[in-house]
Computed example of a mutant assay.
Amino acid sequence: MDNKRRSIIRSLVLAPLFFGTRGLLASHKGGALVKNRVQYSVNAYSFNAMLRSGEMTFYDMMEFAAHIGLDAVDLTGYYFSSYPQVPNNNELFLLKQRALELGLNISWTGVRNNFVDPDPDMRKADRDMVKNWLAVSSLLGASIMRVFTGKYNYKDFTKGEVKAWLVEEFKSCAQYGAEHGVMVGLQNHNEFLFGSNEIIDIIRRVGSKWFGLILDVGSLHASDPYSEIEKLAPYANYWFVKEHVYPNGIKTPVDMKRIAGIVKNQGYQGYISFESLSEGDPKKIITSMLASFKAEYEKL
Rank of each mutant, 00 (worst) to 15 (best):
P120D: 07
R127T: 14
L215D: 00
V206M: 03
A164Q: 12
L220P: 00
S196V: 01
N105S: 11
T149R: 08
N113Y: 05
N132Q: 13
V111I: 15
K124W: 04
L134V: 14
S143Q: 12
I229P: 01
F170A: 02
K155P: 06
D121W: 07
G150E: 01
R123F: 07
F211Q: 03
V130S: 06
G218S: 13
F115S: 04
G212M: 01
G185K: 04
S196G: 02
A174S: 12
R127W: 00
E179P: 00
I200D: 00
C173F: 01
M122W: 03
T158I: 08
D126G: 10
M145W: 01
D224P: 08
A135C: 03
D201K: 15
I144S: 06
K151G: 02
L104N: 11
N105T: 14
V136W: 01
C173P: 01
K131W: 00
V147E: 00
R127I: 11
L166K: 05
I200N: 03
N190G: 08
V217S: 12
N114I: 07
I106T: 13
N190C: 11
M122L: 14
S223R: 08
E228G: 08
S227G: 13
D121T: 13
F170L: 05
F194N: 05
S208H: 08
A174F: 06
V111P: 00
E179L: 11
K209H: 14
G110P: 03
N132T: 04
L140Q: 07
I144T: 10
F157E: 09
E228M: 11
F115V: 08
K131C: 11
A222I: 02
K171Q: 12
L134R: 07
N153A: 09
H180R: 13
G207K: 05
D121L: 14
L166W: 01
L186Q: 02
S208F: 06
F211A: 10
A222M: 13
E228D: 12
S137T: 12
N188P: 10
F157P: 01
G218F: 07
S227Q: 13
A125D: 03
I199N: 03
K231Y: 11
K155N: 10
W165D: 03
D119P: 04
V217H: 10
Q175Y: 04
Y152F: 12
L220Y: 00
R112G: 06
K231N: 06
R146P: 02
V184W: 00
S172Y: 11
D224F: 07
E191P: 02
D119V: 13
D117Y: 07
G110M: 04
E230F: 04
L104K: 12
G212R: 03
W133E: 00
K124V: 10
V136R: 05
A142M: 05
S223I: 11
N113V: 13
